[in-house]
């Protein structure tokens, strides 16, 4: 029975989630590009310092230096978290084996010890990030439900994956742990294009748009009010 569910999770359910993730992200990019183009053509004032905006956008896409200066601990944890999050699922040997068996695709893997180290750092940094979010009242106030949920949700596949590679320490049988691992991974793939995790592909867009906002001409807020037909209303 467990084997049947494993096959289902590795096969159809994975294909569904993966396809939804890739196509969903492509959809979001296209919609954003379309919306941006429409806004550009609708805009009254196109005289903006675009080269400067581009430069600052690209600059802020790699916020390591600035982040290290302002909140060093948080930045380091966050960077560690992201490194593990991206590298481990893509370059884990076992995952590449599955791609090779299923689709004949192959790429270099990271060594097992590195993968395990990164898994542990990811789990730990996820816990720290969650605690930081709960601890700091400023971040608690600007957080939605999903912001609290995500670090915890991301721990599940990493922890279960860790137990899958060390079944001797696992509280459950190997197959049960594997099923949890695959299903939670699929669930995350499914949620990527629907939630804030879409920032993995939307960051350049949102960064660009917020940079644009910094360089709006004076009094443009009034124009926005007029355009929206909401003069004198509280925002």
């Amino acid at each position: 029975m467990l084997e049947f569910w494993l096959e289902l999770a590795k096969g159809p359910i994975f294909r569904f989630s993966f396809a939804l993730c890739v196509l969903g992200l492509a959809r979001i990019v296209m919609l954003s590009a379309w919306g941006a183009a429409k806004a550009y053509y609708a805009a009254g004032d196109k005289e903006l310092p675009y080269s400067l905006i581009w430069r600052t956008t690209i600059h802020w896409l790699f916020p390591i230096r600035m982040g290290l200066r302002n909140r060093p601990f948080f930045s380091i944890v966050s960077i560690l978290f992201h490194i593990g999050l991206i590298i481990v699922p893509i370059f884990l040997f076992a995952h590449i084996q599955l791609w090779y068996q299923g689709a004949g695709l192959w790429w270099p893997a990271i060594p097992r010890h590195l993968a395990e180290f990164l898994t542990v750092t990811t789990i730990l940094s996820a816990i720290l990030l969650f605690l930081a979010r709960v601890w700091s009242s400023a971040s608690r106030h600007i957080s939605r439900g999903q912001e609290f949920m995500w670090p915890l949700l991301l721990i599940i596949p990493f922890l279960s994956g860790f137990f899958c590679s060390h079944p001797a320490w696992s509280p459950l049988s190997y197959n049960a742990m594997l099923l949890i691992h695959i299903l939670s991974g699929n669930f995350i793939l499914l949620l990527i294009p629907l939630t804030k995790i879409s920032h993995c592909i939307l960051t350049p867009f949102s960064q660009f748009i917020s940079e644009l906002g910094w360089h709006f001409p004076k009094n443009s807020a009034k124009d926005v009010e007029i355009t929206l037909g909401k003069q004198g209303q509280p925002i």
Binding site: A19, L20, G35, K38
Partner: peptide, 24 residues
């Protein structure tokens, strides 16, 4: 995006979900 793209959002979502279903 703005409400102008409501139809696009709806339709592209239908496309994506159906395609993912097809792949599964």
């Amino acid at each position: 995006g703005d409400p102008h793209t409501a139809g696009m959002k709806r339709n592209s979502m239908a496309f994506v979900v159906a395609a993912a279903f097809g792949f599964s």
